[in-house]
Design a protein around this nucleic acid. Sequence first.
DNA 1: CTGAAAGCGCTTACAG
DNA 2: CTGAAAGCGCTTACAG
Lengths: 344, 344
Amino acid sequence: MAKMSVTSADVARLARVSQSAVSRTFSPGGSVSPKTRERVLAAAHELGYRPNAIARAMISGRSRLVALLVAYLDNHFYPLVLELLARELQERGYQVLLFMTGPGDQDTVVQAMLQFQVEGIIMASATLSSSLASECVNTGTPVVLLNRYVPSSPASSVVCDNIEGGRQLAHFLADGGHRKIAFIAGQEDSSTSRDREAGFYKGLAERGQTLYRRAIGGYTFEGAAEAARRLFKGKDRPDAVFVANDHMAFAVMDVLRGELKLRVPEDVSVVGYDDVPEAGWGAYALTTIAQSATDMVRAAVDILMEQIAQQEVQRRSTILPARLVVRGSARVPKAWAATPGAER
Amino acid sequence: MAKMSVTSADVARLARVSQSAVSRTFSPGGSVSPKTRERVLAAAHELGYRPNAIARAMISGRSRLVALLVAYLDNHFYPLVLELLARELQERGYQVLLFMTGPGDQDTVVQAMLQFQVEGIIMASATLSSSLASECVNTGTPVVLLNRYVPSSPASSVVCDNIEGGRQLAHFLADGGHRKIAFIAGQEDSSTSRDREAGFYKGLAERGQTLYRRAIGGYTFEGAAEAARRLFKGKDRPDAVFVANDHMAFAVMDVLRGELKLRVPEDVSVVGYDDVPEAGWGAYALTTIAQSATDMVRAAVDILMEQIAQQEVQRRSTILPARLVVRGSARVPKAWAATPGAER
DNA sequence: CTGAAAGCGCTTACAG
DNA sequence: CTGAAAGCGCTTACAG
């Protein structure tokens, strides 16, 4: 079936105008008389003409393509981010090239993006090595990291105030009367996990406490479950635990309640981070820190658009506020109980 | 800042060969002598040359682009599908153009895909009107629907055997001794929801039962919660409910246990469909039908690749088997109890 | 406002 | 194996 694509020359012939006139008719600021435009549009409609975006990209040097790099989607914060990101970018007239990356194929993927002349790169659940980021920036392609950062890299970033969030959680647990407070980390090399932990220590210190125990969950469901088993076996189990993100916190709650027959929050308080949709589900009702995916996405796209506009690629960072969301998975401090269930 | 992209002509100049030789060096089957290839590669490396994929697409008429159209990602079956789809396509040398669609912008999105000369279109949580699908197929662009179908459309499709799955669930509930069995639908116009429902009726009939009550959840968390409230208010509440997908089933369980203080499965049995990861989480332990995302994705990509290869676009459909996964959310029939927790 | 012409960076017959 | 040349479908100065 007629794979033959119709071109602007075909339309020009039918409309009895030059090919340039056709092109101008389909270009935002093109100067064409109403009469010409009408003839062109009619001919285009008759032939079913659709401008070739690849050709346009080639000649204009602007692909209107933005690459989105993601490593995994099982933490539901990322599907949410992905959806918002794609919609936001589409609205601004960009197309999204999606790349899923594994542990070893970072370089391959970046080469593919660069070959497709993407105008910018946004990385959500993945991080680029400094050298790869430099390679991108050297070609004039801005890189924005979302929910992570790399100190010595030219990549811009958007993060939540993870230090402050961790700190608030520490205050909440300490003020709730807990005295054996544990932490389950994500990945050790994750800036987000590290900052949340650092803030948590700071908050504990401000209440005269130190961390009781620590384990690593690696951001996976199974890893977190395993960490919970290790942390809570034996006599002197913790009376509260901060899990570096909600996704892992659900696994921890399952182990605590299902395997160890502990009550949450009567026996153990659990708090998480992210406020993914499931945190609000009845079965978990997780007390957590909300970081607005909407705001993060908007900030990331803003930075990207600015850097695409100006030729210079300069590193720019945005830190968004953290907001405690109190639900049922952790004992609420008396002082806070005045406004039960409230968000603050 | 060297935004100046280096071209094959630049490499040719440095290597003292023709531009054609450079091109051949970077083309899979290009005939170049080892000596020439070496010189070209050295020069390319020195200049940091990267072939321009846009130019290649333009001249070869093959964009290596596949469009992925998705409507929402809150049902976690779709992020999973998206991830697998992107990885599979990448592996086969295709780039993924991601489009999120809303209720009204189907046409805009399809035009954008077509302008970018995508070689194929895969639709996951979205469906194309027959006329739009025809438009795509008329330009020679194959369309594959995943987890849905449109009878009078030229679009191919991959689905689970939803009728058989619904039937198995009916048998399971009826054999479990339930006598007031309800159903919560997704969207009325969804082929998937309709087939699951039809199979469910068939299975009930085979056990001499008919549906006790019915409500519509619209595939949303809130809609399903609302449906559950309506279905279970008053005296003669159902003793079992089949919810058209897992995502809604979680909402239903939350309402049942959290608001209505009913025990699952002692007071009410709940079954879902999809076997998304959360169905296995301790807090839900949902009995459901597994449809393999991996198999669906592979089948969809197979169909697409076949249709891209041969010029003819012919509708092709694949139906994958349904598999019951027994967990704790529904009473297990005595006859089945021999193998508790088993999958069959 | 309009058309002829150059050119974006490649691939691919075509001769040699 | 190699190079000169044509051409993919557009945009964009440049004259008129």
